[in-house]
Amino acid sequence: MTTPAWDEVAAAIAAAPYPVTVLETDGGRAAHCLRELRITTTSWLGAVVGHTGGLLVDHGWLRVLGSGAGALPGILERAEPGSGILPVAYDVLGGSYVWAANPEGRPTVHYFGPDVLEWQDLGQGYAAWLHAVLAGSLDRFYETLRWPGWPDEVGAVAADQGIHTFPPPWTVEGKDLATVSRAVVPLPELVSVHQHAARQL
Rank of each mutant, 00 (worst) to 15 (best):
V49W: 05
T3E: 00
V64C: 04
P81D: 09
T2M: 07
V88M: 08
G82L: 04
A31P: 01
E104Y: 01
E189Y: 04
E153P: 03
D160Y: 10
H164Y: 11
S181G: 01
P168C: 01
Q120K: 10
F166L: 05
G95A: 06
L187P: 04
A47R: 02
A178G: 15
G155F: 06
F141D: 15
R199I: 03
R199Q: 12
A132N: 12
T25A: 11
T21K: 10
P188F: 03
A5H: 05
P168M: 00
A100I: 02
A14S: 07
A156H: 11
V49A: 06
G174A: 02
A100P: 04
G54C: 07
E118L: 14
L117A: 06
S67D: 10
G123E: 01
L55F: 08
R29P: 06
A47W: 01
L130Q: 05
G28R: 08
P167F: 03
G60L: 12
L65F: 15
V193H: 12
L72Y: 07
G66M: 11
T171N: 07
I85G: 00
A158Y: 11
P73S: 03
Q124A: 12
A5E: 10
R106A: 13
I39K: 07
A31Q: 09
A197F: 04
A183M: 10
T165H: 13
V157Y: 09
D176Y: 08
H59Y: 15
L117T: 09
W147M: 11
T165Q: 14
D121T: 09
D115Y: 14
V185M: 12
R29K: 08
P186G: 10
Y90I: 02
A12Q: 10
A79Y: 02
G66Y: 08
H32W: 02
T179D: 08
R140S: 12
G155C: 11
A11D: 11
S67V: 07
E8T: 11
A31M: 03
E118K: 13
G66R: 08
P73F: 03
P87F: 08
I163E: 07
L187W: 02
V180E: 00
D152G: 08
V109A: 13
T25C: 03
F112M: 10
W147D: 15
R140T: 13
L55I: 09
R35W: 00
V172T: 14
G82Q: 05
